[in-house]
Design a protein around this nucleic acid. Sequence first.
DNA 1: AAAAGGAAACTCACTGATGAGTATACATAA
DNA 2: TTATGTATACTCATCAGTGAGTTTCCTTTT
Lengths: 190, 190
Amino acid sequence: MARNSQDTKLRILKAANRLFYSDGIRAVSVDAIAEKAGITKKTLYYHFKSKDDLVAEYLMSRDQPNLDAMRKWFDDVDGSVADKVYAIFDGVVRSSQHPKWRGCGFLRTAGELANMPGHPAIKAGAVHKKRFESWLADVFLEYKLKNSSSLARQVVLLLDGSFAVMMVKHDSAYIEEAGLAAKQLIEASL
Amino acid sequence: MARNSQDTKLRILKAANRLFYSDGIRAVSVDAIAEKAGITKKTLYYHFKSKDDLVAEYLMSRDQPNLDAMRKWFDDVDGSVADKVYAIFDGVVRSSQHPKWRGCGFLRTAGELANMPGHPAIKAGAVHKKRFESWLADVFLEYKLKNSSSLARQVVLLLDGSFAVMMVKHDSAYIEEAGLAAKQLIEASL
DNA sequence: AAAAGGAAACTCACTGATGAGTATACATAA
DNA sequence: TTATGTATACTCATCAGTGAGTTTCCTTTT
């Protein structure tokens, strides 16, 4: 067994990632994560001071990868800004086909911890959403759209709306509909 | 203590309502609900066959009241359809000021139970969202808007997007922004 | 170069609390 | 007296977190 701190910590985080995203926060025990990571619970507590701490680190570790995925979908499509933003929604549609897809981990975690407003995991979610919104606003500004920051918020609302609706009705047509609405709002701001 | 079945069942449901909505599903124990209702756990299990059953009934009991609130906000405002729909978002803004407000119970429950796709509580959420969407579509049809059903979906997406974003960033400006987007989309369909 | 020491990374086995659900019995209204 | 409704007191599983001790590896001393 690797006696390398970074390696072990990463394995724990990876196990936490899979289990928390798949089953939720309170549904997953620290024992289950330790077992999945192939270490004992005490070792887990050596690397993370509490379950709450682990939850927060789990979400922080998702910030950059999620952002990168969105940007890639945007960048990889040729066309107008509206088309490129629509490509983000299309990327989410494709992701949602995967059997392990469970929507947005940030939103689901924040919803589950709604009675703990100051929880670091919720802050991590706020940071992530903010970074995405800022990136969008910058993009819209580059493309010389009117009301770039309002528009960015509206696109965020539509995207998170897609995630929300998908939790209840597992029908990706809603994501497409949100993409169309986003496209329309962007085109009206040209 | 009232030995009236309906009365007791209602008290249990009321207690479940408050606790589930406030703290989430898995964070609330059956013991806590029984205590809040002023009965013993055994009595609770006499009226509900399991915790899952109670969760489902909790959400089903919220369907009509939530729908009524939305309709009232819509009806109580004079103006164009766009104005009346905006009033719904404005109603949510006002609700969100209340310290006990925790967003949409249907979405939060569905998110928490995302690993149990067939759970009756998620079905109850789907029914509720569907009824709201259908009502909106009917309203838009009455007002002779183009693409009434698409438009209804877009408004639903914006509203649920508001709930989602509010879970993470407690800033009601997002609800207003969603309301403005909804207004704009509706006006474009006149 | 070899031994000693100490810190870092780990395990085993446990605690006290709490979880969902139940066996049995008693009370009340029809 | 019988069905309905309620209570006391339990079961057994699982929870987050910990106490005490062990292994590995690197550094320092001789």
